[in-house]
Amino acid sequence: MNQSTNIMIVGVGGQGTLLASRILGNVAINSGYDVKVSEVHGMSQRGGSVVTYVKYGKEVFSPVISEGEADIILAFEQLEAYRYFKFLKNNGVMLVNIQKIDPMPVITGAARYPDEIINKLKNTGADITEVDALQAANKAGNAKTANVVLIGLLASKTNIPKGVWENAIQQTVPQNFLDVNKKAFEIGYNGGVE
């Protein structure tokens, strides 16, 4: 029914999910697809839960993805992975950065951060890959490139040639940060190791 490839990028406002979605959008156009990228602006960017939808294919209609429709979910944070897991197709792939960021209800003690999220996700039988993107980004030379590490990991899970991803990164990131981002992409592409 739905012919497009559906990718969600989820995380916490300020983690760089917007840049990641823009790289992905450029990858899809450069591959000759119709593309839609739906972003979040305004209030939820202030440290709230953020989700970006990227859809590509022959013809894309809705810019958003409904529950159970995502082929890939790229999660920048464990709790956000958990929150959006119901959007994953039964045969979908989820890539999770192991970083944990306490939301305010946990900080104030009104709620508890769930334990063992990654194990619980894996126990459902879903295809889950975890990565320490922050550590990998530090290896690349800048903690802020964790988003590009995750893009690297995502690239390794698709059949779009690596060069297309590298070009999209070149198109999207500021030139003076290109080298560190290329390195971050490479580490991500290798599953988080140099």
Binding site: S44, L79, E80, P105, Y113
Partner: peptide
């Protein structure tokens, strides 16, 4: 139950 993450 998944704790919410309101903006801050």
């Amino acid at each position: 139950d998944i704790p919410g993450r309101p903006p801050v």
